[in-house]
Design a binder for these strands. Structure first.
Length: 884
DNA sequence: TCGATCACG
DNA sequence: ACGTACGTGATCGAG
């Protein structure tokens, strides 16, 4: 006889448990549409575990139907006072149903009844029919249903483990039978369901009473026999409440359910449905399990031909639209070895380890033939790689990395395999699977492994390029892709290749100067502390300052005392050691990060540094710069600023020229908000901070704007751009929160357009789930409806900041493309070298200086037409330090 | 690998 | 009552 096993799941309870179990990682669990998925994920984990453990022949998930039930009719405060379900959980409920559909599991709800009642009723029917029943829930109340045939599995530690209650286990834990659970609840009540029980009687007392009297009814039959006590009075007084509570706790095992055991027979999952569902949820690990589950469904083996010098002509037979992948395995592609390449489309693929083949005319012609269009992954990387081989390419069509990033700034993995999976293309492994990670990372010796992987990449590009292009079109982002990001990739490649010359002698000179000063200060600090310790260790420093020297503790971090600058500044008067530490920190920073750090990354071949710009990293559309980061070279403090003297032109007699946008972000703000007052200030070329100062402090004349007042107004302007809060502003300029609040209110009254914009952006983010820049760059903000104040506030500030910072990024990107075009069109030797968010840096031969001084600002200020003028300031000198 | 710190816009 | 300014990267010490 086959065993009959029924699995009943309390849907709401398990969803709730899953949600809170993964609440800390809430923001990690969102899919591409910004939907939270943590509860769905947790529920899925639980399902996998439970199905595996109990191997059921029938399954049902019961849900609560709504707020009101027959219990609320008996007692209208039943489950009252519960905080309402967080929106991040509610939004997941419909998808939970889809998950169940995928598993081939029925779900059911019944108006006026709770999930418990459905479970109780069906469990009774199943027992009568000879089933073994397992009930899964997060709610211990359901243990009242345990019998010899029915086990109640209560989730513990989130939902990954369960505690199984049998009648024996209930007895062991509480000393009562399952049917007495309701008596227990009757006497003790239940705070989470908000019913009272008897005053002053909790679980302990209730159990004692039940041990003696067995049931509520019997207790009250003999209540007179109790000796006089406060408890006896309470019992008598709350008799009604006790009976009501018992009734409320009793699960209805006779609910009018319209679902039968026949309806819930379990026949297994619908794998196609689940795969589609997992893709939509971005559940990579479940997808993978499916795959490994699904027999030996190996990834498709693609046919390919290994290229050699002798069969190169085969490449000429390829269609004119194809994909090409050049493998530079190291992150730093300026120095990486070449592992090989693959090219092809449809079912013709060619592959080789020998990148020298690319120098053959078949390829060099193909890459510069306008009739061809080549799809790649990371155009900038490909361009730089080919350039190192002496090859140019000018017909790239789709860059799947860029496309993917523009569609969703979070999809920016540099691993094509991983990214393909995120877009639903599964016939490929990730680099980490094929090459390994960390120190074990290596290119496989086995040709078939490497070649198959490279060919799969090319095939993935064939499929994804077209698909993502359609998606971009849908988002109105085609223009952003083809007129800004793709051309920019090439411009950036050329800047990286150009590199910037570094004067090593100057750095070495600074290195010994700083070393000397550091050892002097170090000596003083040890004297003052009375011991030697590692000044660079915040932990050791904390002990010295706050334990040994007993200085007042201003702020703490998660791990101990804070020793950050703002804290030390407040301690300045306490001891001369503070000034020395601040000084030491400053110089140590310059020494380690800039002098020594920079020396480490100079290419010995040309005495230059070649940074790598990350074009697909930031959430706003800005670039970032690594190895080395040339976007944070010191400028604010003179000692650090001297580092810039080491950045020099690559030719004798040339100059470094720098042009920067003046207050772009505020100009963008004036444009986006349409605020008349703000626009007026820019149109009249006024000092914007002084103008703001006059408005918020109600000054009549510009002469009344003192430096301090201007400084405060400047902070307010910055605050507006960052998404202001009174607390943030008060911290920044050292005023009270109340004053800060007053400033902000006055500001909004003076600039009503700004106020409208701020509110409008938050609303847009709430309605559509994302915000956009002027060029339709998009940022999704899944936390905008969060019930967590802090997360929600952060999303709100981002909603207003991103269009500003992002539009400013759009503007300079356009300027860079135009600038590079002009330089090439005019055959100038001047090279664009660096971009620092609102600033472009060039090296210029003397005979081009006059032209460039005029050209750069005119290209930059006409990059985009705004409702206010853009302003550009230019300076130049013998090195970067002088160009300021 | 992570948190604290500090460099930039 | 919450607990915050927006966007980055490199270095260090410590687990």
């Amino acid at each position: 006889m086959t065993e009959k096993n029924l699995l009943l799941i309390d849907g709401n309870s398990v969803a709730f448990r899953s949600f809170f179990a993964l609440h800390n990682s809430l923001s990690r669990f969102t899919n591409a549409d910004g939907l939270h998925t943590n509860a769905i994920y947790g529920f899925n984990k639980m399902l996998d575990n439970i199905l595996d453990m109990f191997d059921p022949t029938a399954v049902l998930v019961a849900f609560d139907a709504g707020k009101t039930t027959f219990r609320t009719k008996m007692f209208d405060e039943y489950k009252g006072g519960r905080s309402k379900t967080p929106p991040e959980l509610s939004e997941q409920m419909p998808y939970l149903r889809e998950l169940l559909t995928g598993y081939g599991i029925k779900s059911y709800e019944l108006p006026d009844y709770e999930a418990d009642d459905i479970i109780g009723t069906l469990a009774r029917e199943a027992e009568d029919d000879g089933y073994q029943v397992t009930i899964v829930t997060g709610d211990r109340d359901l243990t009242q249903l345990t019998t010899d045939q029915t086990t109640v599995a209560v989730t513990v530690k989130g939902v990954s483990e369960v505690e199984e209650y049998t009648p024996a286990h209930v007895k062991e834990k509480l000393g009562i039978t399952p049917s007495q659970i309701i008596d227990l609840k009757g006497l003790a009540g239940d705070t989470s369901d908000n019913y009272p029980g008897v005053t002053k009687v909790g679980e302990k007392t209730a159990l004692k009473l039940l041990d003696q009297f067995e049931s509520v009814e019997n207790l009250y039959d003999h209540v007179d026999e109790l000796k006089q006590s406060k408890m006896k009075e309470h019992l008598i007084e709350d008799k009604e409440a006790a009976f009501l509570s018992k009734k409320l706790a009793t699960i209805n095992r006779d609910a009018p359910i319209k679902i039968t055991l026949d309806d819930v027979q379990y026949k297994g999952a619908n794998k196609d449905y689940l795969i589609d569902f997992y893709q939509r949820m971005d559940f990579q690990s479940f997808l993978k399990n499916m795959q490994s589950d699904m027999e030996p469904v190996e990834k498709k083996e693609l046919k390919y031909t290994e290229l050699t010098k002798d069969n190169l002509s085969l490449v000429q037979e390829l269609p004119k639209q194809l994909a090409f992948y050049l493998e530079l395995p190291d992150k730093n592609y300026h120095l990486s070895e070449f592992a090989g390449f693959a090219i092809g489309t449809d079912d013709s693929f060619y592959v080789s380890r020998n990148v020298e083949l690319l120098n053959e005319s078949v390829f060099t012609q193909m890459f510069n033939d306008a009739d061809y269009s080549i799809d790649v992954f990371d155009a900038k990387r490909t361009f730089v790689g080919l350039n190192r081989l002496g090859i140019s390419i000018n017909n790239i069509r789709y860059d799947v990395l860029l496309q993917s990033y523009l569609l969703d700034t979070n999809d920016n993995s540099n691993d094509l395999g991983q990214l393909a999976h995120e877009h639903g293309y599964m016939d490929i492994d990730s680099d980490s699977e094929v090459y390994g990670t960390g120190t074990k990372r290596a290119i496989p010796d086995d040709d078939t492994i490497l070649f198959q992987h490279l060919v799969r990449k090319v095939h993935a590009l064939n499929i994804l390029g077209e698909k993502l292009n359609d998606d971009l079109k849908q988002n109105e982002q085609l223009e952003l892709y083809s007129s800004i990001e793709l051309p920019l990739a090439i411009v950036l490649a050329k800047m990286e290749i150009a590199g910037i010359k570094v004067n090593q002698d100057r750095l070495h000179q600074m290195q010994s100067e700083f070393a000397e000063r550091l050892s002097e200060i170090e000596h003083d600090i040890y004297q003052e502390a009375g011991e030697e310790f590692n000044i660079n260790s915040p932990k050791q420093l904390g002990v010295v300052l706050f334990e040994k020297m007993r200085l007042p503790i201003i702020k703490k971090t998660k791990t101990g005392y804070s020793t950050a600058v703002d804290v030390l500044e407040k301690l300045r008067g306490e001891s001369p050691i503070i000034d020395n530490i601040l000084n030491y920190r400053q110089i140590a920073k310059i020494q380690s990060t800039y002098v020594e750090g920079l020396l480490k990354v100079i290419h010995s071949s040309d005495q230059k540094v070649h940074t790598t710009y990350l074009q697909t990293l930031t959430q706003t559309g800005r670039l970032s710069s690594i190895e080395p980061n040339l976007q944070n070279i010191p400028i604010r403090i003179e000692e650090g600023k001297k580092i810039r003297q080491a950045f020099v032109p690559s030719h004798e007699g040339w100059h470094i020229l720098s042009s920067d946008y003046s207050q772009v972000e505020l100009r963008v703000l004036a444009h986006l908000t349409g605020d008349k007052h703000m626009q007026e200030a820019f149109k009249n070329d006024q000092d914007i901070h002084a103008s703001t100062a006059m408005r918020i402090f109600g000054l009549k004349d510009a002469s009344e704007v003192t430096p301090n007042i201007r400084r405060q107004a400047k902070a307010v302007n910055f605050g507006i751009v960052y998404g202001i809060s009174d607390y943030g502003l008060s911290q920044n300029i050292g005023i009270t929160r109340k004053q800060a609040k007053q400033f902000i209110e006055t500001y909004f009254a003076e600039y009503p357009g700004v106020k409208n914009y701020v509110d409008g952006m938050v609303k847009i983010a709430k309605d559509q789930g994302y915000v956009e820049t002027i060029s339709h760059r998009r940022r999704y903000l899944p936390d905008i409806n969060s019930s967590n104040f802090s997360q929600r506030s952060f999303a709100e500030r981002t909603a207003m900041n991103t269009p500003i910072q992002g539009s400013a990024a759009d503007i300079i990107k356009i300027a860079m493309i135009k600038m590079q075009n002009e330089l090439e069109k005019r055959n100038l030797k001047t090279k664009m070298l660096l971009q620092v968010h609102d600033e472009l840096i060039f090296e210029v031969p003397d005979n081009e200086m006059t032209e460039i001084k005029q050209l750069v600002p005119s290209v930059m200020d006409s990059a985009m037409k705004l409702d206010v003028p853009l302003k550009v300031e230019t300076s130049w000198g013998n090195n970067w330090y002088e160009a300021k």
